[in-house]
Design a protein around this nucleic acid. Structure first.
Lengths: 159, 159
DNA sequence: CGCAATTGAGTTGTGCACAACCTAATGGGC
DNA sequence: GCCCATTAGGTTGTGCACAACTCAATTGCG
């Protein structure tokens, strides 16, 4: 029925039952949180990954990251970012331009409209945090645990 | 620069900085865990959502769930499940058939090959759990916190 | 200098996710 | 028995994700 040694060491991984799997909890919670974002970001004409790109650009201020720097921050590759950035450019919140110093690079910089969005969206994180029903301490603990998992996995992949 | 009241009540939601957002931690961790699954599930010719469908079917044993029962368990709608189930049927692990009692329903049941997969995949959860680098207690705590978030969000949506 | 290896971005193809819509089957009220 | 609202599943269209690939620009090494 199941691996009894694994069961002894790691009951939480027992059996192949959906409700016991951390992986499903993570997958379901991630989609649920995106559901919370959807109607909120819709007010600004953005999707969730597009909003993440703006978070990076707002944080960087005046220095314009390249596509691959954005990819490193968000852990997304050019296959995902290229069309996404094209849509954000069409929406008028950013501009893409080839670097003069290195013609391979494409620099991504906010337009005035993109910068203005930051002010208008400052209430968004709080609205989402409240929807989780967690306390601030729980949110911090959850965030740090998740970041540790992500780090562990990516360190292993580099080897 | 930021909402100072929100900052006072909820520093974790401060500013719109990527690294401080629980939402990004959740999104990144979910994708990282899927990256762990990908090469493992590839050995069995499955994707991660396909594996989740099999978890439900294995758990139900002899009673064959309908498409919407699968959707309720996984929180996925027919737009996602219909093509996914068609691919699993083409792969030979399950069969779809209209219910005799109610011609609107489609019952999903495992083939012998689908049932046999369960034995072959019993080691999968442990392999993934180890990759997270978390202790068993941390995994259980994480899972329960995430399930609470998902529940809270879905209860709010029903209203 | 010359050229092979590397890097950066984009494209293509597959598979989710989800909204919006469609059709057929069902069931309750009259 | 008839009608209409509801339910179940499927289809279409958009937008991620990611693997595999292409191509041009750059780098580094002999």
């Amino acid at each position: 029925m199941h691996n009894s040694i694994a069961h002894y060491v790691f009951p939480v991984t027992d059996d192949l039952v959906l409700g016991r799997q951390v992986c499903f909890a993570l997958y379901a919670a991630s989609r649920a949180l995106t559901d919370v974002y959807r109607p909120i970001l819709d007010e600004f004409g953005l999707t969730y990954p597009q909003y993440l790109v703006l978070l990076v650009l707002w944080e960087r201020g005046d220095d314009a990251p390249t596509v691959s720097e954005l990819g490193a921050a968000l852990r997304l590759d050019s296959g995902t970012l290229s069309p996404l950035l094209k849509r954000l450019e069409a929406a008028g919140v950013l501009v893409r331009s080839r670097s003069a110093a290195d013609e391979r690079r494409v620099e991504v910089r906010l337009t005035d409209a993109g910068r203005a969005l930051r002010e208008r969206m400052c209430g968004v994180p709080l609205r989402v945090a409240l929807a989780t029903g967690l306390t601030e301490a729980e949110l911090i603990g959850l965030r740090d645990t998740l970041n540790r998992v992500t780090e562990t996995i990516h360190r292993q992949k580099e080897k």
